[in-house]
Design a protein around this nucleic acid. Sequence first.
DNA 1: CCAGACGTTGTT
DNA 2: GTCTGG
DNA 3: CCAGACGTTGTT
DNA 4: GTCTGG
Length: 227
Amino acid sequence: MCGRYTLRTQLNQVLQQFAAESSSATWEPRYNIAPTQHAPVVLIEEERRVLQTMRWGLIPSWAKEASLGAKMINARGETVAEKPAFRAAFKRRRCLIPADGYYEWRRSGAKKQPYYFHQPDDQPFAMAGLWEEWTGEIKGETHPWRSFTIITTESNDQTGKIHDRMPAILTEEDWDLWLDPEFADKPRLQKMLHPLADEEYFEIDQVSTRVNSPKNDSAECVQVEEG
DNA sequence: CCAGACGTTGTT
DNA sequence: GTCTGG
DNA sequence: CCAGACGTTGTT
DNA sequence: GTCTGG
């Protein structure tokens, strides 16, 4: 799955790579983006690609409490079109989530070892996602809040050595169709969420357990562990 | 009918 | 063990 | 995802 | 809002 990721890349480079505009988003490099925190996503607004920051953990529009979003940090690609919490967003509110790495943990007995998955050149890639708008109170502020979820798929042989499931990665040629709110070919959309074909897409590093703490956002999170 | 869930991964 | 918050 | 709390009354 | 379980 995908419960933590990085976006260390500067905002202007992300905007350029995803050919997106940004009205007001600001961003500092992040080494440990955790659920319920805000992060940039790319979506279509008025037929243009726009980058906005949203809260991670999709809060369905009908939710009574924002806390429901804490459960909705991931959505299975195989079932996302049908699930009550996601199907409305799947129809018309798909997005790309820029990331330049993500973490998975593997437990060996009592120990929990984090691994960091990233491209050899550390360039950003696009995780497939959905976003939603919910109106209600978060930390004393009541207004419309946007939130997102990351879609998961089966791992391939390479990533599967560490973890059974991984975020769905969209190749650049799929971005436009995925983002198009008018595009409604459900089977075609779900086909985009297939496991990563290229087994050598990611480099996998065993990294510092500093990343375990959601509040630790230091560069040391991505440092390779000795041994 | 109403009440309660609405999600995922990974497992001694 | 299970839930909540980040 | 992991870390940290998991409770109450009453107030320096 | 909509579905499932009782």
